[in-house]
């Protein structure tokens, strides 16, 4: 994936993608941990999807933030 901001000094879109997914990943992961002690009433809740899906989104976001951080 090319790292080319459209104009000199402009942050690449990939950085914004990283930020929002890192925040979302952390929020969902923490919610998943909370649900271990407060189960929710959804189908397949026993799979604890918020934990692994939140972790996955957070890791993807962190990679994008690190790879496309300002000043790199």
């Amino acid at each position: 994936m090319e790292k080319t901001p459209a104009k000199a000094g402009m942050l690449p879109v990939w950085f914004f993608i990283g930020v929002i997914h890192l925040i979302y990943g952390v929020l969902i992961f923490i919610t998943g941990l909370y649900e271990l002690s407060h189960p929710v009433d959804t189908v397949l809740a026993n799979l604890h999807a918020p934990i692994w899906w939140g972790a996955f989104i957070g890791v993807v976001g962190a990679i994008y933030v690190w790879r496309f951080r300002p000043g790199r």
Binding site: Y24, L27, I28, T31, G32, E35, V40, D41, T42, V43, L44, A45, A49, P50, W53, G54, I57
Partner: peptide, 12 residues
């Protein structure tokens, strides 16, 4: 979505 997703995932 409502079937499978609880708080957090539902917001997403």
């Amino acid at each position: 979505l409502a079937r499978y997703c609880g708080p957090g995932l539902l917001g997403l």
